[in-house]
Design a protein around this nucleic acid. Structure first.
Lengths: 151, 151
DNA sequence: AAAAAATACTTTGAATATCAAAAGAAAAAA
DNA sequence: TTTTTTCTTTTGATATTCAAAGTATTTTTT
């Protein structure tokens, strides 16, 4: 293995070992500002899954988050109590619970989104179009690797 | 924002929003094989922090993991009970506890390392030297972004 | 139409993770 | 020799998670 490649290996390994493990913690610190001081990083993750599109039911949100529906129920209890999420029984099928973001929840959602935008800007700042293309391709490979390894 | 760029934005955003959140879950599934069925992803993370170098004390490992020493004590109790970690009082300073990996712990450590190696290989396989360069640079920026945002 | 099965969700009980604060033991400083 | 500091563990409280049991509603079968 030549030196140059070795450096890249070390770099990538460091990212995998350290950065990914730190990201959730750091992200949480960055997100939980004075305005949204009563929600955790986990909560924010749930708000993101509930999203700003059509209301979603419990099962589908749980699937997105890879948790059981029981686990989600507890988390949603909290978010409803804190006023971030609306929980409404469906009229068509009264077994179904529909989740949506309250105004406060949407605010938090957009606050989070801004963090991601900032992050993407930071990453792509000094990259030209072609380089961004390369980066996108590499990350896509990373994703495929994970999704395939899952099996 | 032009269409091409928008696509990349979506792509990068998806990676940041979903992939990073999934990675730890997927990694855990991939790692907890029949051989190491009694440890969690969190355990594996701790084994990684204890590492295969010189024995480390509680405080320093806790700092690496960004948890309190009390939290680490509990986790180490488990790992010692399961036979992955050796916990020895230092002779020089009898307040200090020195942690090291047992043979079983080292095996798990290398198993984990192999996963990372596979992943890096998968990512870099189809990329030429220049492309790897771009990827490395972008990830380095991502790392800097996070470390700086932390303040 | 009634009974049985399936579906969507909540509740419960147990395990694990986490922190802050208190407590214990040993070393360093005064 | 006290006092203070350092390193670790313990304790009590809160949160997250899952599997399994329970509830309510809808769909399917008989």
């Amino acid at each position: 293995m030549e030196v140059r490649t070795m450096e890249h290996y070390e770099m990538l390994n460091d990212v995998l070992v350290n950065l990914f493990n730190e990201i959730l913690v750091i992200e949480e610190k960055a997100l939980i500002t004075s305005e949204f001081r009563d929600i955790t990083g986990n909560d924010m993750h749930i708000l993101e899954a509930v999203g700003i599109q059509e209301p979603r039911n419990m099962s589908s949100v749980a699937r997105t988050l890879s948790v059981t529906v029981g686990t989600l129920t507890i988390a949603i209890n909290n978010l409803v109590k804190k006023g971030y999420v609306n929980r409404v029984r469906s009229e068509e099928d009264r077994r179904v619970v529909l989740l949506s973001l309250s105004e406060k929840g949407e605010k938090a959602f957009y606050h989070h989104k801004k963090f991601h935008d900032d992050m993407i800007r930071a990453i792509t700042e000094d990259l030209d179009k072609e380089e961004i293309e390369v980066l996108t391709r590499a990350l896509d490979k990373l994703r495929k690797f994970f999704r395939q390894y899952q099996k």
